[in-house]
Structures are given as structure tokens and as C-alpha cells.
Design a protein around this nucleic acid. Structure first.
Lengths: 260, 260
DNA sequence: ATGGCCGTTGCACATATTGCAACCGCCCGC
DNA sequence: GCGGGCGGTTGCAATATGTGCAACGGCCAT
């Protein structure tokens, strides 16, 4: 909608790939160097971009500050955190909390396993949406039309032989998750890692977040992990209760329709 | 330099305080609602802003992704990480890694003491620049002119009775740190917490990052913590060696002069 | 029903942004 | 030591772009 801002913002993902100099930025934006310079300067003033000693540009510090404050404003996260820690203390494995936003599922909190083997995931990193238990939980709650629309648009990378292969399979899986009220990922993302997850609901019953427990099967088999399901569900329900209690309708999908 | 972009970017810190509706944004920007709407839309398209169900705006998901990628591009961090983990396993306390950028010091990595809770939890949070051990280490390496300039501009909040009270005291402290090659923060930020830190240097000897070990004195006294100093310094030196080895001059201050 | 509030849209105006070209400083090769 | 070239920077004129306005429309509360 606003060309200038649009161009300026396009610089950020570009710099996320790595530092770049003025010429490179200008080229990739398809604008004159002078234009790129002015945009970069503006970004710089706001601290979103940093000029390193070799004059090249790189993403700046304020970005962290913003992301940090943003995550702190999510009150599901705040409410859930102590529950997650508690669960982690009981079961020992890695616990994740994720939300759905604009066709992406992202982790907003994580409590690491106390076992040395740690899985690679990062708060803020988009989740493997076609296979992760939390992703299935979040998507399963959308309307059928939305699910279908999203399923069509997705790619279905075969991380492992057990990854969800295509849209129909994914939709079927979502249907199943929707009915049973919990989800798993058994080696669908990494061969040796299994997860069990449960949804967290707002006062109106809509899923606002999802949590999961993950463990490599060198530590526990998939069957053993599944025995934790009741505990996971109880924790999720406890969070749901806390969350509905505060009644803060401030965050995440709450009402039925979302424009797009 | 660019009015439109400037206005658009001003929205971000504003939303960082919490969700806001169109009218509020327009007011605080001092522009018409229609203008604010278009700016928000552009930010929205880039995923920096999210529209929640109640129509209010909030910081969006891509912000996390960007901050995440940004931090991953810092190669000091990558190189240092395994050393930090190793140190953490030895001493058990929280380990921090920080860099200096544009008059700010920020944590770029952290290994928690007991329960490895969410990483990056404090990234972006303004570091207590006048008292933190890592801050002293990073600032101590600047030229005297730069140190003086910064010292003048800073505030000196008295977090505790042992906080650095004013610019002259701070400059003296930096001088001391510069000479001895390590730094402490003994209850200067929080009464009961002590830190020991050491600098990480690039091939040219300039300080590119700083690390520290922190522990509450209910666990170890300041004297006991200080006995870890040799270990901390060895770790920092090991990282320095690794970092110089790769010779990647890509990030952080490397050359002598920095424009400003 | 009705009034008011908030988000949204089309339009005409003018301002802010753009590309250009010339300039500067630096590094490198000759 | 000199000249050429490269990357970044600035002033300017043209115009595309963003702006405020006013009117519209949906929604909630009265």
C-alpha cells in the first residue's frame, strides 16, 4: 500500500540473509543507490539496521528489543509459563508452546529437556507446519474452509518417511486431531523424535495456543511417551482454565471469523 | 530522512507497549487515521504487525523470525556457544555473552544455570550498562574519547548502594577494567548477584564481545565466584582463539576506527 | 429504531520521494 | 606517485506518491 515503506521493509528480510552493502541492497530492491541509501538511513535511525565497521549493513539491535517486548505482551505465554516449567520438572523432556498467526505456527516458549540430547528449535522460528503436533492442533481448530485453503497452499517436505505427504493426508490428520483433542508427531520431523501435544483454549472454546512434550526415542519409546498424554492434557487444561479466568480477550484468535 | 518510513517505523515501538487500535496509533503519530491505516497495512503485509481478532494491532510474528535470523548471523555467537555451554556445565551458573552496538550493550546468548529456561529471554532488554561486567568490558576497549563521550551521556541509576554513581567513577572503573583485562559486578545491579567477566578479542586485539558468569550470593559468595576467574578467562581466550582462527572479519568492530 | 463511534474508501492537492548526474574519497594497479 | 575505477554521498528538478479531507458504512449501545 505504501511504496516507500514497502521498499524499506523489504530490506529487512534481505539483510536477514546476511550483511550487505549499499549496492547489493539497491540492486535487490531494484532502486537507485541513492534511494536505497535514504531508506537504509531511516532504518538506521530507528535502530533496525546497523552499520558495521566495513560499512556494510546488518540487522540492528532494536529488532531484538522489539521482538522481546512483543513476546512479553502475549499473555497466554505468561500464564502458561509456570505450568510448562512444572511439567518439564515432572517429565524431564522439552516442552514447547506455540501459537498460530497468519499462516504460520511459531514457538513462543520452550523449556529445555534436562537430558543432554536437545532438539533444535528456536523461539520465533516458524514450525514445521505439516508435521509438528502443535501445528496440527492449531490448524485443526480452524474452520473447514480455512483448513482447506491453507492445506492447499502448503508445501509437504518429506523430512522423514513418516512426514505428512500431501494436502489430503494433512486434512485427514487435522480431522482426526480435531476429534480426539490431542495430537502427536511420531518421527515426522526428525526420525528419532516423537511429540505429544494438547490444545489450550480460550473462554469461548477456541484454540489459542498449543503445547507439546518432545523426546528422542533413544530416551523413551513412542509408547512410553504416549503414557504422558493424560498429564499433558491436564496441563493444557489447567492453562486453559487460567487463561479463561483472566478473561483477557486481548490476544490470539478469539472470535469466530478472521478476515484473512 | 524519509518521512513515510519514519512514521511507519515509529509505530513499532508504540505497539511494543501493547496492542493499540487505529485511532490511538493515528493520534500518537500525529497523522490522520487514513494515513495511519495505510502505514499499518503496509507493516501488516510484511508481517511486522498483526491484527488481532478485536481489530487492534500488535507486533507480528515476522519480527521474531527476523530477530532470530539476525542473531544467527553473528558469528561470534556461533563460535562462542559451545564454549559457553561447556563452562556452564563446569560451574553451573548462568553464563552470558554480550556485544556492544550503537551506545548499547546487548546480550546475544545466555546459558541458564539450573533449569535451562528459554534462551534469549533478555536479549534486547536494555543492559544495565553502567554496572554490568560485560558492559564494562566492552566499553573499556573503546578509545578514551569515545568512553568519555558515552560516559557523559549515560544515566547512573542507583540500583543498589554499590552501583556506579556517576561518570567519573564509571570512567575510573573502565580504566581499571582496561588494565586488568577482566571485570566484575559485585551486587551493583541486584544486591544479591555477583558476576565475573572476561573479554573476547578478534585477531587485531579489539574486544568483539564479552562473557560473564553470574551467581546469587546465596549460592556462592563473591570470593568463591572470583576463584572462577581463571577459568572464565581461559574460556574467553579459547573463544578468542577460535574466533580469530576463522578470520571472518564479517561482524562486529574489527578495524581500529569506527566513524561514530 | 437511532445516534455515535471507528474503520474504510475515493479523490484532489501538494508534498515528499525518486532517479539522475556530478562529486568525493579510497583503494588498487600500473 | 599517479590515474582509473569503485562505492558511497549530495543537490536538484520532475513527478509519482503519500496525505488530509469528507463522505460512507457497519456495529454497538442507548
Amino acid at each position: 500500500m505504501s511504496q516507500t515503506v514497502d521498499r524499506a521493509l523489504s530490506i529487512l528480510p534481505l539483510l536477514a540473509e546476511g550483511p550487505a552493502d549499499l549496492g547489493q541492497v539497491a540492486d535487490r530492491l531494484g532502486v537507485h543507490k541513492s534511494t536505497a541509501l535514504r531508506l537504509l538511513r531511516t532504518l538506521h535511525e530507528h535502530g533496525l539496521v546497523y552499520r558495521q565497521s566495513d560499512q556494510r549493513y546488518r540487522l540492528g539491535a532494536r529488532l531484538f528489543a522489539l521482538a522481546q517486548e512483543a513476546v512479553e505482551n502475549l499473555d497466554v505465554r505468561e500464564i502458561a509459563h509456570s505450568h510448562l516449567v512444572e511439567l518439564n520438572e515432572k517429565v524431564g523432556h522439552t516442552v514447547h508452546l506455540a501459537v498460530y498467526e497468519e499462516n504460520e505456527v511459531l514457538y513462543i516458549d520452550k523449556v529445555e529437556s534436562r537430558y543432554p540430547v536437545r532438539m533444535y528449535s528456536r523461539i520465533g522460528k516458524p514450525v514445521a507446519i505439516t508435521v509438528a503436533a502443535v501445528a496440527k492442533l492449531l490448524l485443526a481448530d480452524l474452520s473447514e474452509a480455512e483448513r482447506r485453503a491453507i492445506a492447499e497452499k502448503l508445501d509437504y517436505p518429506m523430512y522423514t518417511a513418516r512426514s505428512t505427504p500431501n494436502a489430503p493426508a494433512f486434512l485427514r490428520e487435522l480431522e482426526k486431531v480435531r476429534e480426539q483433542g490431542w495430537a502427536t508427531d511420531l518421527g515426522g520431523h526428525e526420525e528419532s523424535i516423537n511429540c505429544v501435544g494438547a490444545p489450550i483454549r480460550g473462554a469461548d472454546g477456541r484454540v489459542v495456543a498449543a503445547m507439546s512434550v518432545s523426546a528422542p526415542n533413544v530416551v523413551v519409546t513412542a509408547e512410553e511417551l504416549l503414557t504422558l498424554l493424560p498429564l499433558v492434557r491436564r496441563t493444557a487444561d489447567a492453562i486453559s482454565r487460567d487463561y479463561s479466568g483472566t478473561g483477557s480477550t486481548a490476544n490470539s484468535p478469539t472470535k469466530e471469523a478472521r478476515s484473512r
